[in-house]
Design a protein around this nucleic acid. Sequence first.
DNA 1: GGTGTATCATGAACGTCGTTCAATTAATTA
DNA 2: TAATTAATTGAACGACGTTCATGATACACC
Lengths: 203, 203
Amino acid sequence: MGRRPRHSKEDFQAIALAAAQAIIAEEGLQSLNVRAVAARMGCSVGTIYNIFEGIEELVALVNGETLDALYDALSQAPVTGSPERDLHVLLDLYLKFVTERKSSWNLLFEERLPEAKEPPAWYFEKIAQLFTLLTRILKPVFRPDQKEELAHAVRLLWISLHGVWSLNARGHLPIVSGDPLETVAHSMVDTYLAGLRARASDG
Amino acid sequence: MGRRPRHSKEDFQAIALAAAQAIIAEEGLQSLNVRAVAARMGCSVGTIYNIFEGIEELVALVNGETLDALYDALSQAPVTGSPERDLHVLLDLYLKFVTERKSSWNLLFEERLPEAKEPPAWYFEKIAQLFTLLTRILKPVFRPDQKEELAHAVRLLWISLHGVWSLNARGHLPIVSGDPLETVAHSMVDTYLAGLRARASDG
DNA sequence: GGTGTATCATGAACGTCGTTCAATTAATTA
DNA sequence: TAATTAATTGAACGACGTTCATGATACACC
């Protein structure tokens, strides 16, 4: 038989991931490219393409870690039974995370999923995991039998907040609102929650 | 004195803009680059840099026209006094526009404003113009003296919907919701409007 | 018309990027 | 040790945005 791989594919991917994270932390997003990752790993660019289909796959891994780290940061938030209060606490942890890990965070918004291709399965899982945090906070707004309504509300709230993060990440937020990021995010949550309560009491 | 320009800077920018639009329409976003624009204009790449600081400035012009076209499409929407109905009609025009001019629309979400630089002034104006459409629709929800509350509500609704468009443009919407774009957008508007009414009746 | 000059227009060339692939290296088996 | 098989390499490719020495051109003045 032939030559055995020095590292398994998974090992190599982990090393590449660490290298990418180091570059992002030390040099910023604009320095994240194949040659920089290869140099930091101590291998050639060709090896990167042995491990990954392309740079996008590595970026997806980095974004996966960002989502995990976000979950870790947000899961500290308490659930008191008051959605308003809980959401505000969650939001502040969120904003702290965005501020502290600005580059990684922005990378999430650079990613462009190819038209034809399905997003990777673990992407769905990580988002679902984050959704559970919102779900348990919003639970008191709904009756126990309104499972689907609750899930629906979580999705919409997520998307609304994504509007804020997205505009902010691309520098467009000042075009839309003169208020700072925190203010906009808090207003968003308050209004949305009021809407949920109103629709819930309607039926 | 020296040589007079063959065209004024504004003329040239208009020609470049038309060339860019033609490329987007006929070849798609991925073919929009300096060389393609220059070739279609019948000039050299250097001339592009005589007219613009860089390609981003041309992209900004294209996006400006997209915002104008969007305003034209949406300003047909009637104002009946029922915000729910009016918003749904507006939303459908919106979705029609997004479908018909998908490439131009996506370009709006590719743009990344440089950190240090202020967005161009006409950007604020065009967004403000679009805001007036939402403002007159949402007016019945507020008392005549609640000018600032109305403006605030318009901004938040805009940002919420931006969350939907942004996810959709990057292919991330299926990760968050299994529902089609229209459904998500309509739900968003309904919930937000319920929230506005609830908060308005509180004070 | 000729000359000088200020200005515009040119496109080859540069640096960077993602990506490819023939050649090289090395681990395993016979 | 030699053959076999596969991982690793890095020069090279094409596309990109951008630059700048060079050439071309229209005007003012004589």
